[in-house]
């Protein structure tokens, strides 16, 4: 069992798009060494909530967040919080693989370069190699680092995006349905990877697939209509849900 350490504490979070409330009073803990899964039907707010954790919702006009989200005890919506630093510490992997139209090497080197994490070329090479190894992609691409990242297969692209996120040594990695655009074999590889990564990082994964949540996560939060219906140890949620709605969703009665 890996060491568990509380990383993000979200308390009574409300999110509004203009006048419309998208998230209603959500409180969740996210810890290092643990994979936390957000499940729920489409439009339940799970992706919206995920984006509030590294303030990617800032890019959406008219979006407003209330309540408190603390990273290592520091409120990420406080005025002193630098969103650049926050996003470097809380990385994100998107639903559709989105490598930059640059070489594989440059995709991974992008983050360290803008944050100034590598002193010289050798450092950078080391960071790129380490990140690609951790993302399980090194052996496949080590001979063609100069090729375009967009030329890779979908599964490889997604692992490249994970490597890109890892390269800036984040503390948390948010994954927004990372396998929804992938075939089952690529999905299996990503799931293995998530299992390997959880030792070093706090991982949050939004997923449509309850099987995936059951396979990869240790904690699960079930979102419905903008609220968290149930949050707890994954095994409990799937085998012994406390709430009727959770049971209905898990047994496939809706969603």
């Amino acid at each position: 069992m890996t060491e568990q350490k509380l990383k993000i504490a979200a308390r009574n979070v409300n999110v509004f798009y203009g006048a419309k409330q998208a998230i209603n009073d959500v409180s969740i803990d996210i810890s290092t060494g643990v994979v936390t899964a957000f499940i729920g039907p489409s439009g339940c707010g799970k992706s919206t909530f995920l984006r509030t954790l590294n303030r990617m919702n800032d890019t959406i006009a008219g979006c407003r967040v209330e309540g408190q989200i603390a990273l290592d005890g520091q409120d990420i919506y406080a005025s002193g919080m630098d969103v650049v630093e926050l996003r470097a510490r809380v990385g994100m992997v998107f639903q559709k693989p989105n490598p930059f139209p640059k070489s594989i090497y440059e995709n991974v080197a992008y983050g360290p370069r803008i944050h100034g994490l590598a002193g010289n070329k050798a450092d950078m090479d080391a960071i790129v190699e380490k990140s690609l190894r951790r993302a399980g992609l090194w052996d496949e691409v080590k001979d063609r680092l100069a090729e375009s990242g967009t030329a890779l297969s979908g599964g490889q692209q997604q692992r490249l995006c994970i490597a890109r996120a890892i390269a800036v040594s984040p503390e948390v990695i948010l994954m927004d349905e990372p396998c929804s655009a992938l075939d089952p074999i690529a999905t299996a590889r990503i799931e293995e990877l998530i299992d390997d990564l959880k030792e070093r990082y706090a991982i949050v994964i939004v997923t449509h697939s309850m099987q995936q949540a059951a396979r990869v996560s240790q904690r699960t939060a079930f979102f419905h209509l903008g609220t968290v219906v149930e949050y707890g140890v994954t095994e409990d949620i799937f085998t012994n849900p406390r709430e009727e709605r959770t049971k209905d969703y898990i047994t496939g009665r809706y969603g």
Partner: peptide, 20 residues
């Protein structure tokens, strides 16, 4: 490896430069 390098003065100076 908890990343505390962000608090290093050099890192903070770099951040300020980037924001400028």
């Amino acid at each position: 490896m908890i990343n505390s390098s962000w608090q290093a003065p050099e890192m903070q100076r770099r951040l300020a430069r980037r924001h400028a």
